[in-house]
Nucleic acid binder design. Structure first.
Length: 236
DNA sequence: TACTCTTAATCGCTAAGGGT
DNA sequence: ACCCTTAGCGATTAAGAGTA
């Protein structure tokens, strides 16, 4: 995924009210930017951090800047949760995701289950439908990329609905997209949300596939990176 | 009265779907 | 080809309901 224009560097003053962050550009001007990430953003929203912003394409928008990247310990981390679906969809279309290759059509945000939407629905003649849920991962503890960074009831519900698809004879794949380049592997944050970790382990036993990829991040775009090994061992 | 638990509202943006 | 409306995103928090 390319940014429409190169990102602009700034310094984070503070993040607040879930969707907003005050930042200071290098020339000293301060603006409030939109944060497309309602999560806890553990370790990625500390005042003083170097951040990268994109200008809003819609002139009607109240907030003229989007917070896209943050530098943590010298590494870029993507914080915009609107991007992972597109990054994965692009990579699938380009045949870069081995597990999801060979489908004719990719549709985004297709309704299913109870008031849910699947991130990607892959279809091909003569093959079972393939339901793909993408989760953005930005939390790093030790050398591990971990998800979630806060209790996610919705995430657990998504796993249940993916399991339902498998029971219906279709394919269901959880894709964890790690928007950073400095992790050695992925595991669920069982101490943060034990219910989610347990549900994920059970879902994989029930036939839901779970895969994990990193990203290559730069101020001009974000692309799919290498697969990341996963440890779904239950610890609690 | 003093807790715990549940529910609903909240923010700005996006994609989908309906309408013209 | 364009609006316009709506649901969903999801953690937080306040308000409301329920229980002892």
């Amino acid at each position: 995924m390319r940014f429409a224009a190169p990102l602009v560097r700034a310094t984070l003053i503070k993040r607040y009210k879930r969707f907003m962050a005050d930042v200071r550009f290098d020339d000293g001007t301060e603006v409030t930017a939109h944060v497309a990430n309602s999560g806890a953003m553990l370790g990625t929203a500390e005042p003083g951090m170097e951040v990268w912003l994109s200008p809003a394409s819609n002139p009607e928008r109240k907030l003229k800047w989007n917070w896209e990247l943050v530098t943590v310990d010298g590494h870029l981390v993507g914080v915009n949760t609107a991007h992972p679906n597109g990054i994965v969809a692009e990579a699938v279309a380009a045949g870069q995701v081995a597990e999801l290759a060979g489908y004719d059509s990719i549709r985004r945000e297709v309704k299913y289950g109870v008031n849910s939407r699947i991130d990607l629905l892959l279809e091909a003649e003569g093959r079972p439908k393939c339901w793909v849920e993408v989760k953005n991962v930005h939390l790093k503890r030790g050398d591990w990329a971990e998800f979630p960074d806060a209790v996610t009831v919705r995430g657990t519900k998504h796993l249940a609905e993916l399991t339902d698809r498998v029971r219906a004879g279709e394919r269901a794949v959880m894709v964890y997209l790690v928007q950073r380049e400095d992790c050695a592997g992925f595991r669920p944050a069982a101490d943060i949300d034990p219910v989610y970790a347990r549900t994920l382990a059970q879902a994989t036993r029930d036939g839901v596939e779970a895969i994990c990829y990193t990203c290559r991040l730069a101020p001009d775009g974000i692309d799919l990176g290498a697969p990341l090994t996963m440890d779904l061992t239950e610890r609690i």
